[in-house]
Design a protein around this nucleic acid. Structure first.
Lengths: 164, 164
DNA sequence: ACAAAATAGTTGCTATAGCAACTATTTATA
DNA sequence: TATAAATAGTTGCTATAGCAACTATTTTGT
């Protein structure tokens, strides 16, 4: 029984649009999808702030993390690992290239592919950024047990499965 | 102890970049923030698909839901209710206006404000869209108990609080 | 009453996301 | 082998998000 926002669902009433004028405390935030979205925005903004000193946007940072692990990956590889559209990868890689953190090298044996390598500046960033990311994750999960995190993960996974 | 992705955190090792080459199953998805983000994208895309037949984008739909409850709201009001930047509201309202779902009326007693009213087309949309949204929420929460939803809500709220 | 401050909206910029359509290159196949 | 199909990447378009800076209007404070 979760079709309606929690505030009305527990008292088991009819469809909410019918009494929109009567119960004014209905909020779109009561929809779990909206709540997840707003949470995501707050989380992303926090990461954005913390990475701003390094000229690294949050999603660009994910690319850098993969490259710090091992560079010379193709955009295709980055796209698969990050589960992002290849067009987004193209644009993020372009941005990282403009900032001088990576360079693109066309693959000789398959000239369709581009391999991404870290520049010195890009490599140097690792020791500064990784601690920031770790501190962020310590902060956001403070006072939350592994069991609770697993529970959130499990239920969000179920929601993903529910919508295919 | 959640600074590292779950796969390495349980065995209590040092910083992950140091053995990136050895343990290849580290995924950025193991970070709860990334997982939440990807979940949000999947959820949003599902809503987007279901609302596409009505020429309504997901966030535009939230504005419509507030207006179906009661129209004549100012953009300021919409901004506060949806916790969105006023610039986003301006652009979403412009889009809804272009599609002919709403009209803007400048407030006579305070000519800085604009009140948003539904057009006939916008009003007519309610009966078609609300069932789609309700079905979506039934679908995404299928097999998930109220207790589980509350737990997710509680823990996500704690994460929000952790980052202010 | 008048200047300063606050408020409501708009526009420009960057970053992200995802679809469609395109180029270039490689592979598969008749 | 010539052609079709697949693959890698790019560009254009729309939608969202948030910051900075701007206009217009109203309210405050002296």
């Amino acid at each position: 029984m979760h079709l309606m926002p929690a505030s009305t669902a527990d008292i088991g009433q009819a469809e909410w649009p019918d009494y929109g004028e009567l119960i004014m405390n209905i909020k779109v935030q009561d929809y779990i999808s909206v709540f997840i979205h707003q949470t995501d925005l707050k989380v992303t903004n926090c990461v954005k702030e913390r990475l701003a000193p390094f000229q690294l946007a949050p999603e660009q940072n994910l690319i850098m993390m993969l490259l710090w692990e091992r560079d010379g990956r193709t955009q295709q590889e980055l796209s698969e690992r990050l589960e992002k559209d290849k067009t987004n990868i193209t644009r993020m890689v372009s941005s990282l290239e403009q900032k001088g953190f990576i360079k693109r090298v066309t693959e000789t044996c398959d000239r369709r592919s581009v391999r991404i390598f870290l520049t010195e500046a890009g490599t140097a960033l690792q020791d500064k950024v990784i601690p920031v990311i770790e501190t962020f994750h310590q902060t956001i999960t403070a006072g939350i047990t592994k069991k609770e995190l697993d529970e959130v993960h499990r239920i969000l996974t179920k929601m993903r499965a529910n919508i295919e």
